[in-house]
Design a protein around this nucleic acid. Structure first.
Length: 464
DNA sequence: GGAACTCGCCAC
DNA sequence: AAACGTGGCGAGTTCC
């Protein structure tokens, strides 16, 4: 339940949807032959792995227990077999209270056949969600992803048919296979410009927290949190172990915390998925290696964190330090907007949108930040579209991913384009919206001429 | 035979 | 006291 409450807010969506319609009309090339070849290859791999499962004692026992041919891809049937037939203890529940069969939970069971199943599911995800989608949606070798402004509760955009906003990135293999299918126009190259830490910066515009702003500009909050979480004494980012732990702090603590998560969830995630540590007492040699012959469990034990329980307490302390010491002004803002909602029944974003209806606290805190952050991107996309036309450029915008714009660039125009966009995204938007009191910065990634979207590399664009 | 639901997983 | 925000999509399943 929300609405634009100013003419300006209405105009932003109006101009935004027109600019996005242009991006839709440009579209992207799809290598159909490649997709068909990949799908065949993946299907072969899947059959081999499936047979491995079907031939196993695990599967035969499952079949015997339920007296019919099990469907290995049915979460319901698998959950039933594991939790009701075999009596495996439920470690995590789904939203409806059933035993979970997600990747994280199955990993804990240490059953080789389930590892094989997870491997198959990764392959199926790539084939059936992405390659199929691209192949199905392409016409004459082009896709035209749709971009919507009327779907998300927060006034973010969304994308569909195909969804251009969730193509694999972190998993190297899945990234390679899927993004390799997407190509620029002949003789052109993809460029992606994204806002650095956009939501955190916009959050700071709401709270005006001095320490938060200072850390955005000069500090490294992920490093500081890593030091707190993992009791690192002399942080050295050139050490691979320290760099990994900084990544864990960023993705396993800072981001979830800004979305409203709390220490217990963060602790489970950090211990299991980042440190690879079991619950219970820590033993020497457990977990990821942070230095040669020295694991995270060794490090924890040496620093008095002898068990998972103790680690949870450490994460709780780090959380306290994060919200009540370091960024206490930001925390005050979170409380004040929550009170504002409780007394008025609605809240308003910096970009002029009202949110009303029944909302939980986390929603109230997130919506204004998420909407205003996206609107910075949208405003830049509108102005970018105008500028490219005004300059009669051959380069075009082909996509939008929440805090990033994807261009199909004529290589001759690359430098000019970056200069124009840097000015729009970092300077002009702040003139337009003076409430942006924190400098905005962008990063760039570039693909080779005629290279696919899998070949993105960081591009240093310096300061202008 | 299709709509709606659950679960899981990809992105930011 | 409660406890992760926003989407899209596929497969399995259930309901009508």
């Amino acid at each position: 339940m929300m609405s634009p409450n100013t003419k300006e807010a209405y105009q932003l969506l109006h101009d935004g949807i027109l600019a996005l319609a242009e991006a839709e009309s440009h579209g992207l090339k799809i290598d159909v032959k490649y997709i068909q070849k990949q799908k065949k290859q993946i299907s072969k791999e899947i059959i081999l792995l499936e047979n491995k499962i079907y031939d196993s004692a695990f599967y035969k026992d499952w079949k015997k227990a339920v007296k019919k041919e099990p469907n290995i891809y049915s979460s319901q049937q698998l959950g039933n077999y594991l939790y009701k037939v075999k009596g495996v203890k439920i470690k995590k529940e789904t939203a409806t209270g059933e035993g979970s069969t997600d990747k994280e939970t199955l990993r804990l069971l240490n059953i080789p056949e389930l590892e094989t199943l997870l491997e198959i599911k990764e392959l199926k995800k790539v084939r059936d969600t992405y390659l199929d989608q691209f192949e199905r949606e392409q016409v004459n070798g082009e896709i035209h992803p749709f971009y919507h402004l009327h779907i998300a509760q927060t006034y973010r955009g969304s994308s569909s048919n195909p969804n251009f906003q969730n193509v694999p990135k972190r998993d190297k293999k899945a990234m390679q296979i899927t993004r390799r299918a997407i190509k620029p126009r002949p003789g052109h190259q993809f460029l992606e410009l994204d806002y650095s830490q956009l939501e955190v910066r916009i959050g700071a515009c709401y709270s005006k927290d001095k320490k938060l702003i200072d850390d955005i500009l000069h500090g490294d909050m992920h490093r500081d949190v890593a030091i707190d979480l993992f009791k690192i004494k002399n942080f050295d980012k050139s050490k691979p172990g320290h760099s990994t732990l900084r990544g864990a702090a960023k993705n396993g603590f800072v981001f979830p915390q800004f979305y409203g998560d709390y220490y217990e969830n963060c602790a489970v995630n950090l211990a299991q998925n980042w440190c690879k540590l079991p619950k219970g007492k820590f033993k020497k040699g457990q977990g990821i290696e942070i230095e040669k012959g020295y694991t995270i469990a060794d490090h924890f034990i040496d620093n008095g964190i002898k068990s998972y329980r103790k680690f949870v307490a450490t994460v709780q302390e780090a959380e306290h330090n994060f919200w009540n010491v370091r960024y206490k002004t930001h925390t005050k803002w979170k409380e004040s907007i929550w009170r504002e909602y409780q007394s008025n029944g609605f809240i308003t974003s910096k970009t002029g949108f009202t949110f009303q209806g029944i909302m939980k606290k986390n929603f109230v805190i997130n919506y204004p930040v998420q909407s205003a952050a996206f609107h910075c991107l949208l405003w830049s996309l509108i102005e970018g579209t105008k500028a490219l036309k005004r300059e009669k450029m051959d380069s075009v915008i082909v996509g939008q991913i929440h805090d990033a714009i994807v261009f199909d660039v004529n290589p001759k125009e690359l430098n000019k384009l970056i200069k124009i966009m840097n000015c729009i995204m970092c300077n002009d938007v702040r003139q337009h919206w003076p409430w942006i009191i924190v400098p905005l910065e962008i990063g760039a990634e570039i693909c080779p001429v005629d290279g696919s979207w899998a070949e993105k590399q960081e591009l240093n664009i310096g300061d202008e």
